[in-house]
Design a protein around this nucleic acid. Structure first.
Length: 482
RNA sequence: GGUUCCUUGGUCAAGCGGUUAAGACGUCGCCCUCUCACGGCGAAAACAGCGGUUCGAUUCCGCUAGGAACUGCCA
């Protein structure tokens, strides 16, 4: 059996859509699971949609996610170039289109917009056009005359009007359509560039692609691609059409959702590994019920037969959970490195950011969550005295006031403001007065933070704040409660 | 409109003729606890509908309904 070769063939039109990322992932996994090759091809045949820098985004994203390609524009292994505009320049597509013309499987078309309008009809609120094969009837001489006169032209596929065409998808099985549904799609555009429809067939064959992994949206044009392969006498690759990723409204994930691209997600504080892991599970499930997978583990576990056929909603809530799992499992040094910019933004005071980072690591799902956990370090926020009332701790404003007052001399006498020492002192204080720990620690924590929730307990916070600041805050609380 | 595809809890999903219909996220409750979180335990929550086939259908077939994709000189 020949080596598996898959490709990822994005258009450089902007950010990496998560659907695209998943297609790339699956193509990578299909290849790597069988120890095959993963190829990158740039499909830049639409001149108008090209976006400056988009190719770099593709490289960066593949590198960041670990989807390392074996071949591509920067790694020619003999079937290059790997950029379609360069292939076009070499005349590859026109050459093959002409072969089709010779076989009667394609033809020149000189129809202009005016003429094409006649083929259009409006049904409902949509405009559909089916080309009427007008130019197919042109004689060889007429065609040559028009060509010689420099008339603009396109080359169209010549599809039959009767019969059916069947193609096989690894997931969906055989899909059959009436040939009457097959439009004479354009193969070569009037600017000389091939359409995706043609270029992908020619390139996939020339590059020896064995498994075509792509989005579901291509399923309805696949019969036409099959006819192309057959017309050339080429072996048809295995097709694997992946289900769509949708938003909560079950519609195609769009920019409007705010998290439609890999770059969006990273900007929002998600980790690359979590995004890859999450996206792998949208439309595919492993045999085990494990959900946390590194890329290497995915390679081992990935069986493309387990890809599902129905669309999947992109559930950002679950992604957040998964991201949190990665956060917690993360090596602290790396966590700190990534968290530091956020910490520095919200904590200006001279506090031990590493200690704060440690407290926060198990409590956040994405980096921006840090803000709400640390915003009290620089200054105690405005808060209501009723916060001192806590049913379970059996505290209220009066009890808190008296506890805090009693505590001041104790805390003034204390020099070791480490968490352990403070906790020991306060526990002892509580025991001596026959208080429950919470009865004294709740007011302290409140006094010191002014918050309902904090990333650590009272003594942990005091360790970070230090003696002076802790006492100042407690005294301020006493004043507030008096 | 036409064509094609899809349809298990709110979401991701397992299941591939006989199951108390997994698991995860989320939700709720309890425990742990110097708050919250983590962690632990538990609960509620699903086979779109109708017909077949079959001793027996979530599973196979058909129809209906709903959804989606395609219907570009975009990919």
């Amino acid at each position: 059996m020949s080596k598996v070769r898959t490709r990822f063939a994005p258009s450089p039109t902007g950010r990496m859509h998560v659907g695209n990322l998943r297609t790339a992932l699956y193509a990578y996994l299909v290849a790597k699971h069988e120890d095959g090759d993963f190829i990158l091809r740039i499909e830049d045949t639409d001149q108008e949609r090209l976006v400056e820098g988009a190719v770099d985004i593709i490289y960066r994203t593949l590198a960041a996610t670990g989807l390392v390609h074996d071949e591509g524009p920067d790694k020619d292994k003999g079937v290059g170039p790997y950029v379609q505009s360069e292939r076009q320049e070499q005349g590859i597509y026109l050459e093959y289109a002409k072969k089709l013309i010779e076989k009667g499987e394609a033809y020149y078309c000189f129809c202009d917009d005016e003429r094409l309008k006649e083929c259009k009809q409006v049904i409902g609120d949509k405009e559909i056009s089916i080309y009427d094969k007008h130019c197919l009837s042109l004689s060889k001489e007429e065609v040559e005359a028009k060509l010689a006169a420099g008339m603009p032209y396109v080359i169209r596929q010549n599809n039959p009007r009767t019969g059916t065409t069947t193609f096989h998808d690894e997931l969906y099985g055989d899909i059959t359509v009436d040939n009457a549904e097959l439009d004479d799609m354009i193969l070569i555009k009037s600017d000389g560039f091939p359409t995706y429809n043609f270029a992908n067939v020619v390139d996939d064959h020339l590059m020896g692609i064995t498994h075509v992994v792509r989005g579901n949206e291509y399923i309805s044009s696949s019969p036409k691609y099959n006819r192309l392969y057959e017309a050339f006498g080429w072996e048809v690759p295995k097709y694997i059409h992946c289900p769509l990723i949708t938003n909560e409204e079950h519609q195609k994930l769009s920019k409007r959702s705010g998290h439609s691209s890999y770059e969006d997600l990273i900007e929002q504080g998600f980790l690359t590994e979590a995004v890859v892991n999450f996206v792998a599970l949208l439309g595919w499930s492993p045999e085990s019920d494990n959900e946390i997978f590194s890329l290497d583990e995915l390679v081992k576990a990935f069986d493309y037969h387990r890809i599902s056929k129905s669309p999947a909603v992109f559930d950002i809530t679950k992604l957040k959970w998964m991201n949190g799992e990665y956060m917690k499992a993360m090596d602290f040094d790396r966590f700190y490195e990534m968290a530091e910019p956020y910490l520095k933004e919200y904590v200006k005071g001279d506090y031990d950011l590493k200690k704060i980072a440690k407290m926060v690591q198990t409590r956040i799902e994405i980096f921006p969550d840090i803000k709400d956990h640390v915003d009290f370090f620089d200054a105690v926020p405005e808060y209501d005295s009723s916060m001192y009332c806590h049913k379970k701790m059996k505290t209220n404003q009066e009890s808190s006031l008296s506890v805090l007052k009693e505590l001041v001399p104790v805390l003034e006498a204390q020099d070791d403001y480490s968490n352990d020492a403070l906790f020991e002192t306060l526990s002892k204080f509580a025991a001596d007065h026959e208080y429950k720990n919470g009865y004294v620690l709740w007011p302290v924590r409140t006094a010191v933070s002014g918050k309902q929730m904090t990333p650590g307990g009272a003594t942990e916070l005091m360790e970070i704040l230090g003696k002076e600041e802790s006492l100042a805050r407690i005294n301020a609380a006493i004043a507030k409660l008096s």
